[in-house]
Amino acid sequence: MAILIENMVLPHSQLRIPRWSAPRQGLYGIVGPNGSGKSQFFSVLMRTLKPRLGKVSIENCRIGCVMQHPEHQLTEATVRDEMLWPFSRKQQVDHRFQNQLADVIQRWDLEVHWQQSPWTLSTGQKRRLILAVYDLLNPDVLLLDEPSEGLDGEWKKRLATWLTTRAGTRLTLITSHDWPWLLSFVGTGFWCEKTLDASPKDLGQLWYSHQLPTVNPLEQLWRELLNRNAPVSWRGWIDAEVALGQVVTLWKSVQNQ
């Protein structure tokens, strides 16, 4: 599998990608502000957008994408048909496929909706359905555009767990503004703003160095502590228990001085 982008300029966002070579596998964030071209970058990889300039070379790889609005990907009358249409009748009766299908249906909790129209599902359920389709298709590269949108806390955790278990067998690129969720399971990422970084950096470092404004008080506290050189980790704030552990250690060290 090889994906290489050279001297590319995208329309509208004007994102420039001097050179970007896809990692072979693993989980990576594609992060940056609204309108910077993250979704367009995915469209280029999916070959649904022609860049203004430059070239992309994609060899020997099957790419799947769960779009920002998963209902753009719904085409069938029932959840069952949505899941099965990419597979031939011969494939569908195969015993191994049947087992995989049963696993996928269970993983994304779709049995109860099996004969339901996908259009009657909630936004979170629609997203789970398209994720389930790609779970079954098992592409070499999976592009996820804002995958946590519309998912409740429990499903966000389940999605992170599923992605982590597949990290060793495929390349997954994730765009998201949901920093706590992304930082909870993704190690590195590419910053996308005017240009796309050629090499990945620690996602915690990207979060801190870009000083994004926030309405989350725990995140605000962490920025304040880091700005005053307190010895806390970049990712400590994403979980209250972890944050508490680090802050108590800090507080005790201050008390002992």
Binding site: P33, N34, G150, H177, L212, P213, T214, V215
Partner: peptide, 13 residues
């Protein structure tokens, strides 16, 4: 419905 949908930190604020 989901006011923060797809928004970066500046947009959410």
């Amino acid at each position: 419905d989901e006011p923060e949908t797809m928004l970066d930190a500046s947009g959410q604020l």
